[in-house]
Nucleic acid binder design. Structure first.
Lengths: 104, 104
DNA sequence: GCAACACATAAGTACATGCTTATGTGTTGC
DNA sequence: GCAACACATAAGCATGTACTTATGTGTTGC
């Protein structure tokens, strides 16, 4: 089950910070370490978890490996959320509209 | 940070099963145990985690405590997802439509 | 080739977490 | 009151996980 990997990956605060950084644009592993007081292997392990969950994808460029948000992971979360649409609050309606509009 | 509690709560497969059961309607703690081979205290602990995360809410009825999906938790996930709307895939557009329509 | 760099993997360790059994709390009905 | 029930909490334990240091792999440029 891929949901398991996704939620486990996002359960860690450092990995959420990394993911949020990537929301600002593609970054390599070293750049992702900036600001986070974490060792190089730790970052590498976190990125491995995020990648296995389908939340980020990588692209080697020379010596560097660039990471970016993988839309597939977001889609998986959206699909999971959709299963509980019967319980979505009213405010979610506006949110769905926003999401739709920004996706052009 | 409430996101931390939400993702941690959903990282556990048993808790996701419980949450999915509640999507079918309100159930008490004993009824939630059906099918899941889990002790009564374990279920109680899981429900406590889900409640602390804002994913479910409880309502005591006599000796029973009924649990149901808490829309606030879903909204929190939706809000988190919205932060990454720039990376939503095309298919997410249809999903957002679906979510909006079903929310009437 | 090889030195420097960017990153990944290995192995070990401290702490978090999910489970158990035992016990406590609140409610019902006699 | 008190016995039976539904659930919560406490304490202990086994496993998972996030970290560390050490080392391996792949790339660049001299």
């Amino acid at each position: 089950m891929i949901e398991a990997d996704i939620f486990k990956a996002l359960a860690d605060p450092t990995r959420r910070k990394v993911f949020e950084k990537l929301a600002g644009g593609s970054l390599n592993a070293s750049a992702l370490r900036d600001g986070l007081e974490i060792s190089q292997p730790a970052m590498s392990q976190h990125l491995s978890v995020l990648r296995a969950a389908g939340l980020v994808r990588e692209q080697r460029q020379g010596r560097f490996v660039n990471y970016e948000v993988d839309p597939d992971g977001l889609l998986a979360i959206g699909a999971w959320l959709a299963r509980y649409r019967a319980y979505w609050p009213k405010r979610m309606e506006a949110l769905a509209d926003l999401l739709k509009d920004m996706d052009q």
